[in-house]
Structure formats: structure tokens, C-alpha cells
């Protein structure tokens, strides 16, 4: 018997990959997309914002593999750099949303009573707004910029994380190890965030993967209607919008960044679905 063993959470995640091919494919795709975004300066054949009016609307060719847009910018380079915006917005907003939402859900579930009704009531109000509409309102209020976009999308996704965190907290609260902690004089804060939270992190990771796809879609939609990161920064959403003006004469302008969004969202969904299927029965078994 070895003296050092893996944390059960990580071994559950690892076995999720072993037993579920879908999540494995999603994981590989996401890793490739992240690598492409990280290595954009190396991989991109041209500067993503440098204009060359003489070479505008060129179809894919040996010189620029995916063609150029209406300002003569290299589309492959713009898609690679655009991946950075999508991934940063998706990841940062999900991190913020899961931290705030997770904490609110644990507090609501653990404390119960009036606090629970107050928090979850507020979450229900937030859930009643369509994500895009809520994001649009927030960006319209605080103005479009990368930072504000992250804040706006994070705010729209706090509510689902609060719900995800609250349900298992209600179950864990009744477990005897929480009672043992109280008998040992542990504070409520310690019981909530040192004892309960680590038990629901895997649920939050699964939801985070699925909701990151949603966050990337929201970011693209906001960019599409001009409330995303301001130009000339390359983002997938704003590329689709710019391409729309030339949808008949140069369809690749809109189609290629759309494909990038599609692939990323599908990859995240595959990863999240697979993780959920693999992790859920384990949590029940314990």
C-alpha cells in the first residue's frame, strides 16, 4: 500500500477521460484551440490589424491561406488572435461567475431560511432575463471594453452557478462530518468554504466547462452587434459582422470565424457533457 494517494477529485476527473471518449475528443480540441491562441504570434502569417487596401477581399490562396477581409487583413491571423479574446473572455468570466455564484450558492444552502430566500430570489430575477439581453444592458451601461465585457458576461452567469452550488450544499449540510466540525468548534465560514466547497468543486468544473461555451457565444453575439471589444482588435464576433456585409461576394469572411466559434463551443460542450456523465455517478456512490 502506498502512503501517498491522489486526491479523489482529480482521480475522478482523470477516470472521466479514461472512460468517456467524447470528453477526450473535446479535451484534445480545446487544448489545440488554446495552443493556437497562445502561439498566435508564432503561427500567424501576418499582423492581424495591419491593413493592406490593395489586397482586400482576396479569396483563400497560397499567399494568405484563408483569404483577406475588406481591409486586406489576413483572416487566418485574425482568427488566431480572435481565439485569444474568446478564450480570455470565456475563462475569466466563468472564473468570476463560478467564484461569486459558487460562494452565494454555498451560503444560501448552508445558512438557509431568510438568507436562502433572499439570495435565491435575486438569482431567480437574474435568471428571468435572457443572458444576451442582460449582457447587452450591462455593457450598454458601463461601455464596451475587454474588461467590461468580462464583467458583463460574468454577471449574467452568476445565477446558474449559485443554483449548481446550492443543491449539493443542502445535502452535504446534513452529513455528519459537518456536525462533527461544529462539535469541534469550527466556524461556519470554515465549514462552508473548507469543508463543503471542495466537495462541490467537481460539479462547478463541469458546469464551468458547459457555461464557458455559453460565455463565448455571448461574447461573439455582443461583438456581432458592436458591443464587444472595440475595433480594430480581432474578435470572432466582430469578424462575422464585418463579413456579413460581403456575405454574397466573399462568403468566407463570415463563414470562417463562425466555424471557429462553432468548433470551440462544440468542443467545450463535448468536454463538459463527458465530464458530467463520468463524474456524476461517482459523486452519488460516495
Amino acid at each position: 500500500m502506498s502512503t501517498r494517494t491522489a486526491n479523489p477529485m482529480w482521480s475522478a476527473l482523470a477516470s472521466a477521460f479514461r472512460t468517456n471518449k467524447t470528453s477526450w475528443v473535446g479535451f484534445v480540441m480545446i487544448v489545440l484551440i488554446i495552443l493556437a491562441a497562445l502561439l498566435a504570434p508564432v503561427l500567424a502569417p501576418a499582423d492581424p490589424i495591419e491593413q493592406d487596401i490593395l489586397r482586400k477581399l482576396e479569396p483563400p490562396s497560397a499567399e494568405s491561406i484563408l483569404g483577406t477581409d475588406s481591409f486586406g487583413r489576413d483572416i487566418l491571423s485574425r482568427i488566431l488572435y480572435g481565439a485569444r479574446i474568446s478564450l480570455v473572455v470565456g475563462l475569466a468570466s466563468i472564473l468570476i461567475a463560478s467564484l461569486i455564484g459558487g460562494a452565494l450558492g454555498v451560503i444560501a444552502g448552508y445558512v438557509g431560511g431568510r438568507v436562502d430566500r433572499l439570495i435565491m430570489g435575486a438569482m431567480d430575477v437574474m435568471l428571468a432575463f435572457p443572458t444576451l439581453l442582460l449582457g447587452l444592458m450591462i455593457v450598454a451601461m458601463i461601455g464596451p471594453s475587454l474588461q467590461n465585457l468580462i464583467i458583463a458576461i460574468a454577471l449574467t452567469e452568476i445565477a446558474p452557478f449559485a443554483r449548481i452550488a446550492r443543491a449539493p450544499t443542502l445535502l452535504l449540510r446534513e452529513r455528519e462530518f459537518i456536525e462533527a466540525g461544529r462539535a469541534l468548534g469550527f466556524s461556519d465560514l470554515r465549514l462552508m468554504f473548507v469543508h463543503i466547497l471542495p466537495n462541490i468543486v467537481s460539479d462547478l468544473v463541469v458546469m464551468g466547462t458547459l457555461w464557458m461555451a455559453q460565455a463565448i457565444r455571448t461574447e461573439a453575439s455582443l461583438s456581432f452587434i458592436g458591443l464587444g471589444v472595440p475595433p480594430p482588435t480581432a474578435t470572432w464576433g466582430s469578424m462575422v459582422r464585418e463579413g456579413f456585409e460581403h456575405i454574397l461576394d466573399a462568403p468566407w469572411l463570415a463563414v470562417l470565424p463562425s466555424l471557429a466559434i462553432l468548433l470551440t463551443v462544440i468542443a467545450l460542450n463535448m468536454l463538459g457533457d463527458g465530464l458530467r456523465d463520468a463524474i456524476d455517478p461517482k459523486l452519488r456512490r460516495e
Binding site: 479523489p8 452529513r175 455528519e176 462530518f177 462539535a183 468548534g185 466537495n199
Partner: peptide, 23 residues
């Protein structure tokens, strides 16, 4: 109450529920 915690302790019935699986 903190003083009491150090002097009186409890052993629970269900050993599967009384230990935190993540610790």
C-alpha cells in the same frame, strides 16, 4: 461553547458520513 468543545466530544453513527471525503 469553545471551552465545551474541548471537553466534550462526539462519535457519530455512520462512519461513511462522518468523515469529509475530500480531506
Amino acid at each position: 461553547l469553545v471551552r465545551i468543545r474541548r471537553r466534550i466530544q462526539i462519535v457519530f453513527q455512520d462512519p461513511y458520513s462522518s468523515l469529509n471525503p475530500r480531506r
